[in-house]
Every structure is written in C-alpha cells, then in structure tokens.
C-alpha cells in the first residue's frame, strides 16, 4: 500500500496578527471535513492550541525534555476539539535561552519518533511565532518538514513587512527542498482599500490570497469562551469564511517560490500606498478602485 502523504503546512505572520486564531479555526474546519489533524504550536508562549482545548494550556514538548533526558513525544500530544491532536513546542521564559533552538529540538523529536505516521495524520499544521527571526523559526519550512507555507497578514505595513521577510526565508530555502509559499491569508480586512493593498502586494510578490478574513466580534466572543469560531459559532458568517479557507487549503496542491521585494522596493511601494490612502481618507477620491 502506498504510504499516505501527510500534508504539512506552516502558518507564519507578524506577532499578534491572528495566526493562532486562524490556524485553530483552520484545524477545526479541516477536522470537521473528516481529516485527522495535528496542530503544532511553535511559540514559547505555548498558547497556539488553547482555543482547541477550552482555553486550557497543555504541557509542552520542551517542558518534558527539561525534566527528563529521554522523552516519549506522545506524552506531549493532547486531543482537542473533534479529536485534533494538539502539541506545543514551548520554550524558555522571555529573555533567556534560545527559543529558536527549542523549536528545532521539539520538531525533531516528533519527527524522529515517527509520531506523524503512527497517528495516521492527514494534516500537520505548524503555527510559528512571528517573524522568521533566526534559523530555529525557519525549521518548519526547511527540507522534509512543512511543504506549504501560508502567511497571515493584515494590510498594515508592519504585517506586510513581516510577510515579505518570510518570503525571503522561503526563497532562501526553496533551492534546497524547503517549503514553498501557498499564499496569503488576509486577516482583519474591513475595507475595500485594505483588500486592494493586500491584492497589490500579492501581485507584486507573485503569490495569491487564500482568503479574506474580516475582523469579527464573533471571533473575539469565541476566543473569550476558550473556543474556536468553528466550535463556538459553527453557523456564523465568520465560521463560513474559515470553512471556505479550509476548503481552499485542502484543494491547494502547488506552492511557488515568492518574489519578495527588496527593502527599497518595499519602502517605495508603501509610500505609494500612503499617498493613495491619504487621498481616500481625505475624500479626494471617493471610489477606492479608482485610486488603484
């Protein structure tokens, strides 16, 4: 029997942009579609999977490793909503140690112990901290781990800046069998021009938008009750948005090497948009589409 290929994807993006929210809803939606999913939080804060487990924290891989030298990686796997396997890499307290090395160690431990195969998973989704600040945080996109990368970004410049940095990381590893870019998940999109900014950015960097996720009070309410939107408000409009995202991710097969902008290009691009936004806000141009 041919070995089942596990679809491994990594979700990156600037800190606070909604990665964990998006990832957890994506995991929940894929799980609802009948897939066996593992969500792997790669952040020392270890809160990626909270909303899959009624807001509770789970022991992390690194906590286990800290206590004993030999660890069964299965001890770090906990079931959440709809049987989703939840894992948190964990890491050091803020300001000490090396979180990047922690991610490397945690990911390697699960890989070495063939956990993914043994659990007969369909999906492993890595939710990775912020920017690709060092080699450790690039581990999920290096050879043999994730195959597709999606980046969560709003239309804010700093979020796009972080996404562009990620693209540079992907480009670097693309020649050595690393993960390629699936697309951008546009988050907190509430206006037409925000959508246009993201559209323009993906066009310039030769990628695509996977889904536009509006800012929604439903998400906030769900999170405050320790749940994903899929679980807490399964019939809401927002849940539909996430389910649609899950379908697109599921249908997605071919990722590409992005074309990140260099620092000067990015600055010029942002400056152009600053002028246009000012024009829109000051009423010079009523129709945002004309401004583009």
């Amino acid at each position: 029997m041919a070995k089942k290929e596990i679809k491994q994807i990594a979700i990156y993006g600037k800190g606070g942009i909604g990665k964990s929210t998006t990832t957890s809803n994506l995991s929940a939606a894929l799980s609802d579609m009948g897939y066996k999913v593992m969500q792997f939080g790669c952040d020392p804060k270890a809160d990626s999977t909270n909303t899959l487990r009624d807001g509770s924290y789970i022991p992390t891989v690194l906590e286990l490793l800290r206590d004993k030298s030999k660890v069964d990686a299965r001890d770090a796997i906990f079931e959440g909503y709809n049987g989703i396997y939840c894992v948190e890499a964990g890491g050091p307290a803020p300001g000490v140690g090396c979180a990047g090395r922690g991610i490397i160690t945690a990911v390697q431990l699960l890989k070495q112990q063939n956990v993914f195969e043994d659990l007969d998973l369909d999906y492993v989704i890595y939710d990775v901290l912020g920017d690709v600040v060092c080699g450790g945080f690039a581990v999920p996109i290096r050879e043999g781990i994730a195959k597709h990368v999606f980046t969560v970004s709003s239309s804010d410049f700093m979020a796009i800046y972080a996404a562009n940095n990620l693209f540079k990381g992907i480009q670097k590893y693309s020649n050595s069998g690393g993960a390629l870019l699936g697309g951008v998940i546009a988050n907190s999109i509430t206006s037409e021009y925000q959508r246009s900014i993201i559209d323009d950015f993906v066009a310039r960097t030769k990628t695509q938008v996977m889904q536009y996720v509006p800012r929604s009070i439903t998400v906030t309410q769900s999170e405050l009750s320790g749940k994903t939107t899929i679980e807490a408000a399964p019939h809401s409009e927002q849940a539909k948005v996430y389910r649609e995202l899950a379908k697109r991710v599921d249908a997605h097969t071919e990722s590409v090497t992005p074309s990140p902008l260099d620092a000067q290009e990015l600055r010029s691009w942002a400056a152009e948009w600053a002028d246009q936004i000012l024009a829109i806000e000051s009423g010079e141009v009523k129709d945002a589409a004309q401004a583009i």
Binding site: L62, L65, R66, G91, P92, A93, V96, G97, C98, A99, R101, G102, T105
Partner: peptide
C-alpha cells in the same frame, strides 16, 4: 547542553 541552550544556562 541542550536544556541550558534552550532554557538558558545561568
């Protein structure tokens, strides 16, 4: 060793 590298060696 690995633990001190990840969690800090102070």
């Amino acid at each position: 060793s690995e633990n001190e590298i990840i969690f800090g060696g102070e």
